[in-house]
Amino acid sequence: MDSIVITRIIAIVGFVIGLLGILVRLRDIMNRPFKNDLARGRGSPLRGVLFAFTLGMAPWEKESTRIHWLAYLRGIFFHVGIFMAFGVLLASPWLSLLPDWLVWIATAVTGIGALFGFAGIFMRLAGPNERMLSLPDDYASVFLTSLFTALASATLIWSNLLPAFYVTAGVMMAYIPISKIRHCVYFFYSKFFFGFGFGRRGVIGQPNGEYAEQR
């Protein structure tokens, strides 16, 4: 067997391990009780959820992201790069069939994503708050994900890096459920509960009420 086949198997094994781990995590949280709110609602929880997953994620919407716009945008670009890298991974057996323009876009998006990912490590080291908060797992997770994204970009230029990309992808995917990267699963829960709770109380995502100032 050549290195492509062997490393592809490693990636698939990593994917299966990661998927199983995520399923275990999902089963765990779904086995926990959902705290049902018995108080009468004031606003629409659905509008709150919609807001939480759309406009509420805009960089200008929260004071925190307005102040830390650079860190927030870094995170956005990093994550867009990661998603694109997964796209590259899925399309990897047929890379030669992809049109040039798509290859260049994917190369740029993953490349920029990787740069912002590695920058995240330096930002964690540079800021006193971030340094105090960061755990070894944070550095390892950011490094591994950035490397995966960087190799996705590099593989699109130098196809002989494909085995390294597969190995990194396999290791990273297997690492997801046991590391901080699993926030990709819990994010949807916490964002949902955030939108649901604050929406129900009429705090976010609601139209102007009857007492709003007429402008």
Binding site: Y72, L133, S134
Partner: peptide, 11 residues
């Protein structure tokens, strides 16, 4: 979800 989702970004 709240115990798991924090990425310790500090913002």
């Amino acid at each position: 979800a709240s115990l798991e989702a924090c990425v310790r970004c500090g913002i």
